[in-house]
Nucleic acid binder design. Structure first.
Lengths: 201, 201, 201, 201
DNA sequence: TCATAAGCGAGACGGTACGTCGTGTCTTACG
DNA sequence: CGTAAGACACGACGTACCGTCTCGCTTATGA
């Protein structure tokens, strides 16, 4: 059973960038969203930040890693648990959050994916930044639902916890079909909640 | 005079590649899977195929379109409906099929994903090759389940029909977590089937 | 005894640069004389010649070799034997020629010297372009003087043939003392000619 | 308070280097001879001397001046007159000395030559260290020869006094042809002495 | 039978981004 | 205060790739 209370989400920390580094990452993210991955040039990043290319390459050994760092930094929004009071409300809120983040960074994410599959270190970071954080969040939500008696603790599957965000990411990233709030609502009501409450049938 | 013989017309997809073109696409696909999109070079394709770059660019106006063509050529496959006799069996079979295909083309898929967001034509092809085909398959499976009385026709959602393949693809492609047969079974039993039969509760 | 007649000086040939290469070398030489060796950039050469850097580096593997090539190309003035009719006149003319060439390219020569001492291949070229040509010229001059009976054939030393140009080059290149026509005249009259005619004493 | 002891005043040249500075110059000279001018890096000098780059740049405002200082420090040497008793003996001894010195510092000399043309101060030092010293020596030798009646005083030319060392330096530094004792002997016997005694003909 | 063309290999080319490295300036922390 | 350590801006170097182009060589038809 998941301990929903003592779990320390601690999403805000995890990386320690110096002010200069944060500045570089912000510039990178900015240019990334304006131009896309391969029209972004490291020279442009350096020039915009009034930095030297050496300064950039001292921290991140390649353009791909720079972009990944900028991306994970940009994505790390303070993932405060929704706390709407109901499981359904929490899930809807979570779904909207995922959609918003994914839509915003879809191009970047796709670009980064290629590198991630090649570089185990990047994969590591990616997993930590993306997966683990979201899992903690989900556990928190489900744990509260268990506490409130909305679902049974046995309904929580350690393998399939990410169907909600995963499918939404698939929709934005792989399938070209846009996700609407209606889509999220249907997903929660027709798929996720039935799956979680199937034991109550 | 048109030579009706020397053109290998593939009626299933409508594409018409000459033997030389197929050869180039095969080389491209090979190198694509080995190196990924951006470590694949057109020079390497030409050199490996003992062709001139002009020969490549005469057919496909850019590296992206070359890769797209190679990819769509590579993943073209007939989707035979499972026909196991039960909805659960069909879904399990479908899930395994998706996993197998995705695993096989994971590198290529990731590589192509980058281009999908940039190239509307590629997106079009992607939808046709991957999505529509699968949707027809899914509709067939669900239609039979309705006929057998396993689920109600209203349970079929035109928007969320791809949760099963979509989540599995997410797992292989985006998340780094491998998919096991157990995962597929759990997904079908704990998420998909409860969603489809929720009205029968 | 040196054969002054059958010796084929052939100074105009010896290198076969394509028109494009000649163009690049001319631009290089131009910028070289304007800016000096290390304020010359390969980027500037390429840009000025409306060429790609790759085009430059395809022919010459480094900036140093490019500059050397440009230099030797620039220096290869049609070294037509003076033919003034007297040994003294020929030597004076030769001295003036050496002074003029050396003064014009002093900076470049010094820059190239550093590379030459490191790269045996460059040294080879340098020897051929500079030394061998001048030696042929000198042999031609001395051979005619022998034919005219001005000096004896035994006065020609195969090791010390380059005292005249060598000392003049030293003056321009190493010592900072400028060479005047008076210097050349004195050198010929007080050093070179006495050395060549010492046997007639 | 001025520390009059810790300054190692070299009265012969007027330079005043502290022990730490001498250490830096020695390292510089060492690396200069090993690598040549432009493969020598200030970073390497600092690192080898376990010093900071700031420490280097505090004393010498540029790499060129550092190298100049190291060079002049390295070649400073007392020029003892040969005193063999005959002009020919003195000249041979002088020639051998020049060859030995030049060979020893060939790399450094070539490296420094590049800077000489750019830096008037360096040129100044070069003249003083190399030329003037040698000129005094030559004057001494020739003066003694005049005293002994070997040559006439009018044979001494104020412009061409350095043909002997100049040509030898040319041979070592510019031309790639090595200088042998035989070369020196021939030079003295066939060129220098005939030039000096030409009036006696 | 020969010529005119069309496809092809080979690969040079302009352009442009990458990642590296060196200079000379500067800051920080130590002794 | 001088120093070691090293980050920093600037900018050149040399490499690699894309997409275009020209050059000959082969082949395949049309007079």
């Amino acid at each position: 059973m998941v301990d929903a209370v003592s779990h320390n989400v601690d999403l805000a920390s995890g990386s320690t960038w110096s002010p200069r580094e944060v500045e570089l990452l912000e510039v990178t993210l900015q240019l990334l969203q304006e131009n896309g991955y391969d029209r972004l040039t490291v020279d442009a990043v350096a020039a915009t930040a009034r930095a030297s290319k050496a300064t950039v390459y001292r921290r991140w050994p390649s353009k791909a890693e720079l972009v990944l760092a900028a991306f994970t930094e940009g994505i790390r929004q303070v993932a405060v648990p929704p706390e709407t009071g109901t499981l359904r409300g929490d899930l809807l809120r979570l779904g909207e959050l995922v959609c918003q983040q994914t839509a915003q960074h879809a191009g970047t994410l796709r670009a980064v994916l290629v590198e991630v599959s090649r570089n185990p270190a990047l994969n590591e970071v990616m997993q930590h930044q993306f997966v683990d954080q979201r899992k903690a969040l989900m556990n928190h939500i489900l744990g509260q639902a268990v506490d409130r008696g909305e679902i049974e603790a046995t309904a929580i599957d350690d393998d399939l916890w990410d169907v909600l965000p995963g499918y939404l990411i698939f929709r934005s990233l792989v399938s070209g079909r846009a996700v609407t709030p209606r889509t999220v609502a249907n997903l929660v009501d027709q798929v996720i909640l039935p799956g979680l409450t199937r034991g109550a049938r």
